[in-house]
Design a binder for these strands. Sequence first.
DNA 1: GTCCAGGGAATCA
DNA 2: TGATTCCATGGA
Length: 292
Amino acid sequence: MKEQMYEVENLDSFELKDIFDCGQCFRWNEQDDGSYTGVFKGNVLNVKKQENGKESRVTFRGMCNGDIKEVVEDYFDLNRDYGKIKETLSKIDDNMKKSVEYGKGIRILNQDLWETIISFIISANNNIPRIKGIIERLSKNYGKEIEYNGKKYYTFPTAEELKDVSVEKYRELGLGFRDIRLYETTKMILDGEVNLDELRDNQNTIEVRDKLLTLSGVGPKVADCILLFSDLKRFEVFPIDVWVRRVMNDLYIKNEDETKVNKKQIEKIAKEKFGNLAGLAQQYLFYWRREA
DNA sequence: GTCCAGGGAATCA
DNA sequence: TGATTCCATGGA
């Protein structure tokens, strides 16, 4: 582990705020200079974007396991053509054109599967600032310390590192009713009831989803977030939370009472309109509706 | 005091 | 299958 640096010029579809504040991740924080610092897969990284007219430069700097170029290309999904994806989605209708334009700098991160599972179990009926606080406390208590630029950072705890943590301790950290779910899911994974390596190797999204649904605290929405935001990278899923239900009702369904909109109806429309890019469409719509 | 948050599980029809 | 209700917590 050593400090490394990597720079890319004129990177397409790469805006720090869009990537880190679009709701897919919880461990990236904006710094005073507008850059973002985060911890992922045992690395601590700072990402800074500088612009000069039409030219831009993104600088990745920090403590990194392995070669920083490879780590960055993988985590930030740099080898995918987002321009083409955005073009396809923009052609669907005027709403999609607007939402894609609003979130044009989004990239879907390749986040660690285990961390994504736990993070989205914590996200249930919760708000983003509080989710971030809980994950930070979990990491500080049970993760490994990494020092960078005179500051201490903490890796997300592994399943093994959470092995002996009690339900009561989770409650102390502020998890609320999610305490038992975290405890049970950790146990299921440690015991091999759900094997994460097998999930990574399985290309059948339905099978992987069904397996995720056996975990405590993982329902349809959380399972879809895991499939979309982890390194499982399934873009055909369509996570439906209160914001997505809201925006889908506003745009396409127009029911008087948005809370009574049928989930299957939303899924059907999403599949018809967005096909195997439904997950991406969901993310542009979510970010647009929540921020704009 | 009330409402809400990137929902899930238990219960009941 | 589908609809209700409860679940901790903290900020608005």
